[in-house]
């Protein structure tokens, strides 16, 4: 599984982008058909916007700052123990490996 994971990461970044985008297109098409009866008029940007979110990288804001953090409750004992060894106050032998 290790080698597969490797290729997956490479693929995720570099390759097969064409297949990803067609998949997003297909999904978009099908959802369009579903909702066609509901509203006759739809704003032009609407479908595209959805597509863009799926494609992931169209007109996203240009910012290097990663803001999509999931905030955890760091008063939780278990959670504290899980990162304890990343600090010098933790177990050095564990971190050395």
């Amino acid at each position: 599984t290790f080698s597969r994971q490797t290729t997956n990461l490479m693929q995720l970044v570099y390759g097969k982008s064409s297949s990803v985008s067609t998949k997003a297109n297909e999904e978009q098409d099908s959802s369009d058909e579903d909702s066609d009866g509901d509203d006759f008029f739809r704003p032009k940007g609407d479908g595209i916007k959805k597509h863009r979110v799926e494609a992931g990288n169209w007109n996203v804001e240009d910012s290097s700052k990663f803001t999509n953090h999931s905030i955890k409750d760091w008063n939780d004992k278990k959670l504290i123990e899980s990162v304890r060894d990343r600090f010098v106050t933790g177990d050095w032998s564990k971190a050395a490996k």
Binding site: F66, H69, S70, I71, K72, S82, V83
Partner: peptide
């Protein structure tokens, strides 16, 4: 502080902002 601990938890020589 929680965000920073999250960065420490995931490891790496830089934080996600500096990648």
């Amino acid at each position: 502080a929680s965000v920073l601990l999250g960065e420490i938890e995931q490891g790496g020589v830089v934080d996600s902002t500096h990648q």
